[in-house]
Computed example of a mutant assay.
Amino acid sequence: MEWRKWYLDVILVPLALVMMLCYHIYLSFMVRTHPFSTVLGINSRGRRIWISSMIKENQKMNILTVQTLRNVVMGATLMATTCILLCAGLAAVISSTYSIKKPLNDAVYGAHGDIAIAIKYLTILTIFIFSFFSHSLSIRFLNQVAMLVNIPNLYPNPSGDLFLTSEYVCELFDKGFFLSTVGNRLFYAGFSLMLWIFGPILVFLSVLMMVLVLYHVDFVSLGNNKEKQRIVDCPRASDPPNGGGDA
């Protein structure tokens, strides 16, 4: 009898999570091997070009640099604040003496006992906590970039004796955006899992729809080959005037 209540949760929810995990493993593989076929790869290259240009033209572009970084930090701060507020709300629901499962007993497919409700809320709470953690680390790296990008004589570095180089700042900038992306994807997964309160079928359908939408968002269509080629051929600001691109 217990298995008849749990089998939908045991099958559909792990299947949905594995489907999302496999998609992001495939996306990570494509970003590493074919970066200019993905939006993430193109944006990463564009950020490196931008930060190198801002360092090179520091005297002219310092206000623009600080304002742009401030906007990025504000976006990450908003997401971190939203995550921690959701965590606080879920913690309040978990600790409440009111049994939230009572009005859902006849409307939810799958398990809806006390243990099932506890597992659902704890899983959702864990996802949002990790999302908050990722956004917090992103803010840390972006704040470091905001300070280092305005250091005088950071670029160029002909003697090679400086440990603060434009490449180091680019790496910090990329890490900040990577952690922000991870936090956003965990946030999306958390919202899908919130539908688990109303049954595992909605979780599976929501994740399936989300993967299809993310695929169209994350990958560049084949019709944009000329645009991709222009980005590939665009040299970085740190490259020599007559030299090639990346090694």
Rank of each mutant, 00 (worst) to 15 (best):
N184F: 14
W196K: 03
N153Q: 13
L172T: 07
P156F: 13
F187W: 08
S192G: 11
N150A: 05
F173W: 05
V149W: 00
P156V: 15
R140F: 15
S192L: 01
W196E: 03
S159K: 15
A189P: 04
P152Y: 14
F187Y: 14
E167T: 01
C170F: 05
T181M: 14
S136D: 02
D161Y: 13
F177H: 12
S131V: 10
N150M: 02
L193W: 04
S136T: 09
S180C: 10
F173S: 15
G160F: 00
C170G: 15
L202Q: 03
E171D: 13
N143C: 12
F133L: 15
S192I: 07
V169K: 05
L193F: 13
V203L: 03
L205K: 00
D174P: 01
V145Q: 06
L195A: 04
L137P: 00
L137S: 12
Q144G: 11
N150Y: 02
F187Q: 09
F163S: 12
I197S: 01
Y168T: 05
G176C: 09
V169S: 01
C170S: 15
K175L: 13
I151L: 14
Y188I: 13
N153G: 06
F178K: 05
A146I: 10
A146N: 15
V182T: 10
I151C: 14
N157S: 09
I201A: 11
L164Y: 12
L142I: 08
V182G: 02
V182Y: 00
F198E: 01
F178Q: 06
Y168C: 06
F132M: 00
M194Q: 05
F191K: 06
G190I: 03
Q144P: 02
F141E: 10
G176W: 02
Y188S: 12
L148E: 11
L179I: 11
I197V: 05
N150C: 13
L172Y: 11
S159R: 04
L154N: 03
L186P: 04
F178Y: 14
N143W: 00
M147N: 14
P158G: 09
L205I: 02
L202R: 03
L193N: 03
F132L: 06
N184H: 13
V182C: 08
M147P: 05
F163A: 00
S136L: 08
H135R: 00
F133Y: 07
Y155L: 13
K175D: 06
Y188T: 11
G183I: 03
Y168N: 11
L172W: 10
L195Y: 10
R185W: 07
A189H: 03
P158C: 07
L142H: 12
P156C: 15
I201S: 04
S134Y: 13
D161T: 12
C170W: 01
G160N: 03
M194F: 07
F187T: 11
L202N: 08
P152S: 13
V145N: 11
I151S: 05
L202E: 07
S159N: 08
P158V: 06
M194E: 07
L142Q: 14
M147G: 13
V203M: 01
Y188G: 08
N143Y: 02
N184P: 00
S131M: 03
G199F: 06
E167F: 01
F132H: 06
V145K: 05
F132Y: 06
V182E: 03
I151D: 02
